[in-house]
Amino acid sequence: MLAALGRRSVGITELFGHLGHFVADTLRAVPDVRTWGRQIFPMMRRIGVDSLPIALFIAAFTGIVLALLASYTVTAAVPLYFVGALVGKTTMLELGPVLTGLALAGRVGANIAAELGSMRVTEQVDALETLAYDPHAYLVLPRVMAGTLMFPIIVAFAMATAIFMGWVAATTLLPITTAEFLRGLRLFYVPFDVTFGLIKSASFGFVITMIGCFLGLNTRGGAEGVGDATTRTVVYSAEMILVLDAYWAITLLRP
């Protein structure tokens, strides 16, 4: 058992070592703008714009549920305008970035891992290297940059949608007026709430795309390896999202 534990520890350490090398190689590819520059917009569309519907869908229902949960939670002693405060704060600080990140971990991370894993197992990556293309500049950097840049944009849309749908639910399903909802929304609002959510979402985008690229390019075997890489990407991405969520809360929200 100790031997297994040791082997596991060594394996994890080795994984982090590979990941460190992978990140360093990616950063070294940043000056190669001519290679990744041509890929960035298609990647931004695929990772960002095409992910908007699922992100907005999740955000809309999150806003509705948040408003109803808030009204259910607050008792007669708490004024109902706190529904607005709860919807706004929760959406901006936590649920907007995290739920969107988890959803995109499945969609974007799995997509990247499957795509790059397939390229790896079909030796397309080897072919690119043969043609003197740096896979990090051609495949990894556009995806990572697109993810890092587009995740905050998607999360901004998600925040706005969740708050809007929270307002709709509150004013139609609850005995609360628009003025009361806005009063609660503005009551505890500070601009850093949005900044915090966007910083988190950018880090989520970076980590999800980086994990997808790393596991995809390190796929071994055939279709099974691709499937394994995809699954591990989703799992690791989800775990990393929660770890980063805690990290940002500790570093940025702690008084």
């Binding site: 931004m44 587009m150 901004a156 601009p191």
Partner: peptide, 24 residues
């Protein structure tokens, strides 16, 4: 792609900035 991404990015940034200003 460029146009679509540009529109989405601009709207996203506008949402974040204008929303923040409005709420503040």
């Amino acid at each position: 792609d460029e146009v679509l991404v540009g529109v989405v990015v601009l709207i996203g940034i506008a949402l974040a900035v204008v929303g923040s200003i409005w709420l503040s």
